[in-house]
């Protein structure tokens, strides 16, 4: 199968090789949550809700009293994929993604400012069409910002595929979580065999994507703040 048409240079879905999918971010979608967001990357749709900082519910979980405890639960809705079937809660894949999202968000949250408290992040995939892990991190960032939780930087995530650069079968997939201002990579996941130079190209492409998403997320947040300001004036 060819991922990039050799004649037109367009991808199967009509995009250019290094073109991102349509982004959409919306803040404040869950009324009861302290912060929430909906994030779309093309057909992938993810909703995130943040509760906290609040008192630690289960003292046994508190690792140290100097930092806030961050918890994350990732879940895929039963109707999110083509084949609609019940997915067991806490399977190996979602446990790992929960861990990955939690540690990625921990890298950006200023946990030392909120000792003896806990922050809960819930992410739910409503529609899965590739890059769910990246979309979840972007949604979580928006929701954390909406909840007013102090962060050292905006962490955004984007995945890049080798297929979009070179024409080769198989789908090596690189997901990067990036702290934009600090110019540092916090999350990096890759499968499939790649020569080192090619890997570097793919990673750089993913980082470019992260930067673009960070700009978009800033816009969304600025827009939201403006809207809130308008409401206060009235």
């Amino acid at each position: 199968m060819e991922y990039v048409n050799p004649l037109t240079g367009f991808r199967v879905d009509g995009r250019r090789p290094n073109e991102m999918r349509q982004l959409k971010g919306e803040v404040g979608v869950v009324a009861r949550a302290d912060g929430s967001a909906l994030f779309e990357m093309g057909n992938t749709r993810v909703i995130a809700a943040v509760y906290g900082p609040r008192e630690v519910q289960n003292k046994g979980q508190q690792v140290n009293s100097k930092d806030a405890l961050v918890r994350c639960e990732y879940r895929m809705a039963d109707f999110s994929t083509g084949d609609r079937r019940r997915k067991p809660k806490g399977d190996r894949r979602s446990t790992e993604i929960s861990l990955v999202i939690r540690q990625t968000m921990e890298a950006s949250i200023l946990t030392h400012l909120m000792p003896r408290s806990q922050i809960d992040i819930f992410v739910q995939v409503l529609q899965a069409d590739g890059g769910t892990r990246a979309a979840c991190i972007n949604a979580a960032t928006l929701a954390l910002a909406d909840a007013g939780i102090p962060m050292r930087d905006i962490v955004t995530s984007c995945s890049a595929d080798l297929n979009y650069i070179e024409d080769s079968a198989g789908g090596p997939d690189v997901t990067v979580g990036f702290l934009t201002k600090m110019d540092k990579v916090t999350l990096l996941q890759m499968d499939a065999k790649l020569p080192m130079d090619t890997f570097e190209t793919v990673m750089d492409l993913a980082i470019e994507g992260c930067k673009a998403i960070a700009n978009y997320i800033r816009e969304v947040l600025l827009e939201n703040t403006k809207r809130l300001e308008c409401q206060r004036d009235h």
């Binding site: 990955v100 968000m105 916090t186 996941q189 890759m190 499968d191 499939a192 065999k193 790649l194």
Partner: peptide
């Protein structure tokens, strides 16, 4: 052969991409 088969960096402290390439070498 120097082929990268998989990478797992599950969040945590951020590092520069140049440092990552150094690590891979």
């Amino acid at each position: 052969n120097g082929d990268v088969c998989s990478i797992q960096k599950a969040g945590g402290e951020g590092v520069m991409s140049s440092v990552i390439m150094q690590c891979l070498r």
